[in-house]
Design a protein around this nucleic acid. Structure first.
Length: 585
RNA sequence: CGGGGCGUGGCUCAGCCCGGUAGAGCGCACGGUUCGGGUCCGUGAGGUCGCCGGUUCAAAUCCGGCCGCCCCGACCA
């Protein structure tokens, strides 16, 4: 490709909307352009990189038996009504009506379409297992897109769907994806870890997320250095300190003027925060018989811990949770700041599983200015649900080995879900087993966003001058530039490299050397060749790697062979990253 | 949805407070110059000042409403 013909241009100034490196550099280097919030055009350079990423994904998924298909972007809403997700998913789903007034859905994922295919195509256990996948556009109307390609509304995703006769089959396909996903990321030279995660709107039993660790990430992870436990904070378990057993003491009302916070209260009463009960009020949205209703949720965790809303939502099977308003709090008979689970009407009372073991806590008195000492679950109030609803934070003890865990930020670049029969049952995906009995197909789904992956790689590999692509995903292998007086020889080098099957971006523009070098650094192609009067004076071409300072002179007649060898060296260095990864349930 | 910021040629921004002929740098076109780290000089094209309404003799500027974009939070595979 001649740069004089390249569609995109580089930008000298930092675009004002870019806050993180990958966003800024992908814009400046001419890889992407924004159309609207969270909606981007992929320009030629990025398109080449994305194609390479997708080919890596194809190769790895094909290797575990995947068959590529393409499913539609527009779905009849009826399918989504069958699985209830039409009702469960909120504003994130794109909805419209076709000309006949039928409800339609913009694809945010494809379980329903897969299930519809399955119920029509799969009749017999002989047709299982199967693995189908596609690389398609998704629309998720995220309330807050940000950080360039990291979090967008429209994106391209490789999603695969496994179909099995039983759970053992699913387990095998799940493990296959676990390894294949590591292979994909490793072949993109992106370091990732796998963490256990919430199943979210996908439903199902088990999920892992593949996380690229970076401060710009928006997921918080808890990681145990000792045993390797790794989980998204949304579901991270931890060992809770066992309080000492003690006799239940009588409830005692104490005056606590202006003590509306746990910290202030504990100090005022001279007790540790762990001897207080923290009340958090939420309104949960529930679905019953396709009807939505809200219910007040009174959640209690110990005063030294925070409520984890995802855990709470899962524990009570709420579709949504939002903080309750002051009026709603008062309506159930609680007093904000002095709220107590004692004598509450009509609320769903959910307590953390540490509370039953924590005797004689300080709680509110439901009276302005007063608290109660020695409140005890079971004696003074009842819980509707006891569950782990406390959040794990930096320093929490590992649920597996008890060591202190660290927290880190990450970007989710891929995920794998054991869906089980969640969709098969709703949509009637059955097959006849060997014994002639109809059974539900056991499903899994597995996704990687290619644009987000591209951005993560850009985020990982850059310096003050620009991008530094790993060769496996670089838009071109070689960036060739000529300086004044060497144009003819550069053109011969270009033709020779192209002839040798090497991907070359040839900067043949009549620009000054500084402009050409700066653009080469910005675009970040791994190998740079310079043909100039100076190099030709030694009958040579200058060869420089983007990730290294030094350059070398290579005789013109050896250049194609030399570059071929260097390309191979760079590829094999990345191949070495592809290793077997330990799997943990 | 709550809080904050911003909207002026393709890009980065000034002008707005204090109303009076729309500016700079970069980029782009043309001419010259230079040629191993964003050369230098000249000439030129390019803007409904986000949109709608109001105030005024006069609005980029003041007032109201709306829209869009960015950041933080809520939310979220």
């Amino acid at each position: 490709m001649r740069m004089s013909k390249l569609f995109s241009q580089t930008l000298r100034d930092r675009p004002s909307e870019a806050e993180i490196a990958s966003h800024e550099l992908l814009l400046r280097a001419g890889f992407i352009r924004q159309l609207a919030a969270g909606i981007f055009t992929v320009l030629p350079l990025a398109q080449r990189s994305v194609t390479k990423i997708e080919d890596i994904m194809r190769a790895e998924i094909n290797a575990i038996g995947g068959q590529e298909i393409t499913m539609p972007v527009v779905h009849p809403a009826d399918l989504w009504k069958e699985t209830n997700r039409w009702y469960q998913v909120g504003t994130e789903m794109g909805r419209f009506k076709d000309k006949a007034g039928r409800d339609m859905v913009l694809a945010m994922t494809h379980e329903e379409v897969v299930a519809d295919l399955v119920r029509n195509e799969i009749q017999s256990y002989r047709q299982l297992p199967q693995l189908i996948y596609h690389i398609q556009t998704k629309w998720r109307d995220d309330p807050r897109p940000r950080a360039g390609l990291i979090r967008v509304r429209e994106f391209t995703m490789k999603d695969s769907y496994s179909l099995d006769a039983d759970w053992d089959g699913l387990d095998k396909q799940y493990r296959n994806h676990y390894q294949a996903y590591f292979n994909i990321f490793h072949r993109c030279a992106l370091p990732v870890i796998a963490v256990k995660s919430d199943v979210g709107m996908m439903g199902g039993k088990l999920a892992h997320e593949f996380m690229y660790l970076t401060p710009v990430g928006e997921d918080t992870l808890l990681l145990c250095d000792s045993c390797g436990y790794a989980a998204n904070r949304q579901i991270a378990r931890f060992q809770k300190p066992k309080p000492e057993a003690e006799e239940l003491k009588p409830v005692e009302k104490v005056e606590t003027p202006e003590m509306k916070t746990i910290a202030g209260l504990a100090k005022f009463l001279n007790v540790p925060e762990s001897r207080t009960a923290k009340a958090v009020f939420m309104m949960g949205t529930f679905t019953r018989d396709k009807e939505e209703f809200e219910r007040f949720v009174f959640a209690i965790v110990r005063g030294d811990m925070d409520l984890n809303e995802t855990k709470l939502a899962n524990a009570i099977k709420a579709k949504e949770l939002r903080p309750a308003t002051e009026a709603e709090i008062i309506a159930v008979g609680a007093v904000p700041g002095y709220a107590s689970p004692v004598d509450i009407e009509g609320a769903l009372v959910v307590v953390d599983d540490l509370i039953p073991e924590s005797p004689n806590l300080v709680a509110g008195a439901n009276e302005e200015g007063y608290h109660l000492r020695n409140v005890n679950l079971g004696r003074d109030y009842e819980a509707d649900i006891v569950a782990d609803i406390a959040a794990a934070d930096e320093g929490a003890l590992c649920p597996e080995c008890g060591a202190e865990m660290a927290s880190s930020r990450g970007v989710e670049v891929g995920n794998i879900f054991k869906l089980g029969t969640r969709y098969s049952e709703d949509m009637g995906c059955t097959f006849l087993d060997q014994d002639g009995v109809a059974k539900f197909v056991v499903m899994g789904s597995y996704g990687i966003g290619s644009g987000r992956l591209l951005a993560a790689i850009a985020e990982e590999y850059n310096d003050e001058n620009g991008l530094i692509w790993p060769i496996t995903v670089a838009p071109y292998e070689v960036h060739l530039l000529d300086l004044k007086g060497a144009e003819d020889e550069a053109r011969r080098v270009y033709d020779e490299l192209v002839e040798a099957g090497i991907e070359v971006l040839f900067d043949d523009r009549p620009e000054s050397p500084g402009v050409k070098f700066a653009d080469a650094d910005l675009i970040g192609i791994p190998i740079r060749l310079t043909v100039s009067k100076r190099s030709l004076g030694e009958n040579s071409v200058e060869v420089k790697r983007r990730d290294m300072e030094k350059s070398e002179l290579v005789p013109v007649e050896e250049i194609a062979a030399h570059v071929r060898a260097l390309v191979n060296t760079l590829h094999s260095a990345i191949e070495k990253l592809v290793v077997e990864m330990p799997y943990e349930d």
